[in-house]
């Protein structure tokens, strides 16, 4: 027993000397995307030989604050934080700053001063909408294109920003018009129900394209279009955002046309920035924007599906 203890102590000491230790305070596992982010962060850390200390906050800020304090006490070399809310972080971030531990924000931003964290890695929600809109501008059929939009939860920032970006992109284009716009609450059943009403209200063959604020709503809408006896992906073009595995399957079947990736790999760029900082103190930009990559049916969707299906989505 004693020997085991001694060995493990030696091992711990060894890792501390050779590898960096990073604490990761995750919000929780409320969605598949979040689970994938956790999985990818673990994978990235392992690939880089970083010792990752993971803490699941189960949607509570006080748990996150406690986790950060504990990371500071452990003397980690950096902290990754996916903040559950935007406010109330000042004092705990100051504690980390006083201990000279760099903090990198993942996915969401906080209202604290920029001096309190090293950088924030995230996606630009408006840009995502713009990429989706640009795809439609480039791929729309000849002539008029009447677009219906499935919005996210009313008032949420992804819903607002993705709507804005899409409109930015189609603004200059000829003949694209959003004729109906309604919330599907980011859910499959919401997407299906609202799409059914769109098909009733606009008599299906008048609709040229659907823009959904996330893939789940698009997947629900595809079922609605199918059940109405039309071909999703052909009769109605479908572009959405997130790039969850199921949408790749739909693309492989020809039911969906394009999706914009909200990559769950936030930690990759974060670790890149940290490694540069550790090496020679390079200060990164205060916001590192992840790539909002566009995937279409030409990008071998089946392979993308296989690559993603085990990430925990």
């Amino acid at each position: 027993m004693k020997r085991i203890l001694l060995t493990s102590a030696a091992l711990l000491a060894g890792t501390a000397a050779s590898a960096q230790t990073v604490g990761f305070s995750q919000i929780g596992s409320e969605s598949g995307w979040r689970a994938a982010e956790t999985t990818l962060t673990r994978q990235e850390a392992e690939a880089r030989g970083i010792d990752l200390r993971f803490s699941d906050a189960q949607q509570r800020q006080e748990n996150q604050i406690a986790a950060i304090r504990s990371f500071v006490a452990q003397g980690v070399d950096a902290i990754l934080l996916a903040p559950v809310v935007a406010t109330g972080w000042d004092s705990v971030l100051e504690e980390a700053a006083e201990a000279d531990i760099p903090v990198v924000l993942l996915d969401r931003r906080v209202d604290s001063s920029e001096d309190l964290y090293l950088t924030a890695v995230g996606s630009d929600l408006v840009h995502e909408g713009e990429v989706a809109g640009q795809w439609l501008v480039d791929n729309k059929p000849e002539g008029e294109c009447r677009v219906v939009e499935l919005q996210g939860t009313t008032g949420s920032s992804p819903a607002i920003d993705r709507a804005t970006g899409f409109r930015n992109a189609i603004d200059g284009a000829e003949g694209i018009e959003i004729v109906r716009s309604q919330t599907g609450d980011f859910t499959r059943s919401g997407g299906k129900e609202v799409m059914e009403s769109f098909l009733q209200a606009e008599s299906g063959n008048e609709i040229c394209a659907l823009y959904a604020h996330n893939d789940d709503m698009a997947l629900g809408a595809i079922q609605a279009i199918n059940e109405a006896g039309m071909n999703p992906g052909e009769d109605i073009l479908i572009v959405s955002i997130d790039a969850v595995p199921d949408i790749f399957q739909a693309m492989a079947n020809g039911d969906a046309n394009a999706t914009v990736e909200l990559t769950p790999n936030m930690s990759g760029p974060a670790f890149d920035a940290l490694e540069a900082y550790w090496a020679d103190g390079t200060e990164p930009e205060k916001f590192i924007q992840t790539e909002s990559r566009l995937y279409t049916q030409d990008d071998d969707p089946m392979a993308e599906y296989e690559a993603r299906k085990d990430l925990g989505y």
């Binding site: 409320e30 609450d185 859910t187 499959r188 059943s189 789940d216 997947l219 079922q223």
Partner: peptide, 14 residues
Amino acid sequence: VATADIRGADANNA
């Protein structure tokens, strides 16, 4: 009915 409708069980939202 709800599960059959969207061909999937959505534990968060169903």
